[in-house]
Write a protein that binds this DNA or RNA. Structure first.
Lengths: 180, 180
DNA sequence: GTAGTTACCGAATAGAATGTTCTGTTATGA
DNA sequence: TCATAACAGAACATTCTATTCGGTAACTAC
């Protein structure tokens, strides 16, 4: 990808998430994004079809990173080789979320956060829930899967409002309260 | 309140929730609401300052009913007099939610449901969570309160997508999965 | 009933934001 | 160096929100 494209895309994302920390999504105009990102109008629409498409792209970008397998440079959460247990996997994901905090904080604050929350629930249901489906007699698995996915997503949202905790701590909170 | 006012208010709410079942909130125009509700433009704006204010009013109306103490006519959930235990209280609220289903279904489907979800979490945190704060060692009460509130709200959202269950069943699902 | 108040209708309009199109300029990389 | 692709930004059409206003119908109290 062209360096100019990356710079533009990055500038728009940064300006947008910055604005999202200050005001609700619906009150933010494209013009304001352009001004803050220092990007031309036609350029913006060459990258993103609509304003809504910008949110979708941002969510996808973050979600891709959060659920990527690649280890970060931090040694503390390199779990490769260790037997893949649930705790390790959850912590790994939480580390990636921590790295995405600059974007996530603004995105989850205002009214547009629901799009990312939905994406998060979907991915957790796919990747995490199957391993956790111990099952409780008399409760539909349907309900249980939704329960775990929502629980994790809401834990993340809570964490973004309470940054003082480490990924390991948050993982512990999550596993302590979610019966599996 | 004037009968004309009530009729108008009701017609707008009905038209709006109906449209919400079909399309996302942002794509619905005021004109469409007016057409379906068969209400004049100036009348609409005499009732609701903006389109967003309509959502807020609708959420408040539903939440007021859901958390009102009044018993419905159904004998099956008249718990007055019985010792107020958690199960009874939860079931009572769920009965009120069931009555609000015609409005809630549309509201929660599209992108605007987050406003009601937030209101729901807030009220649960106020009214329900205090009784349930058994506490788990090493987990912030802050996190626990948020956990219970989110859990209940998401249970409701799930229920609106899965109508075949009774309030008693849903109450059981909720209590079975939420460690307290 | 009748008078006074209040809600309603609907058209016309202002204002704001989105998304398009165009011409000309600048950066990239082969 | 040179073709290509991305960029800037002004001008524009379109769409939607929200306001205003003159006229009609419904409610309330006397």
């Amino acid at each position: 990808m062209d360096r100019r494209q990356r710079k533009t895309r990055e500038a728009v994302f940064a300006a947008f998430t910055g604005l999202l920390q200050e005001r609700p999504y619906s009150s933010i105009t494209v013009q304001e994004i352009l001004d803050r990102a220092d990007v031309g109008r036609s350029t913006f629409y060459a990258h993103f079809e609509t304003k809504d498409a910008l949110v979708v792209a941002l969510c996808a970008e973050i979600a891709d990173h959060v659920f990527s397998d690649e280890s970060t440079s931090e040694a503390t959460h390199d779990f490769s080789g260790a037997g893949r247990n649930v705790e390790a996997e959850v912590t790994h994901i939480l580390y990636h979320i921590q790295e995405s905090r600059p974007y996530l904080e603004g995105l989850l604050k205002s009214g547009s956060g629901e799009l990312f929350m939905a994406e998060l629930r979907r991915r957790v249901a796919d990747e995490l829930a199957p391993e956790l489906s111990a099952g409780i007699e008399g409760v539909p698995t349907d309900y249980l899967a939704n329960h775990v996915a929502c629980d994790f997503a809401e834990t993340v949202r809570w964490w973004m409002r309470n940054p003082q905790h480490s990924p390991e701590e948050v993982c512990r909170f999550f596993l302590a309260t979610t019966r599996l």
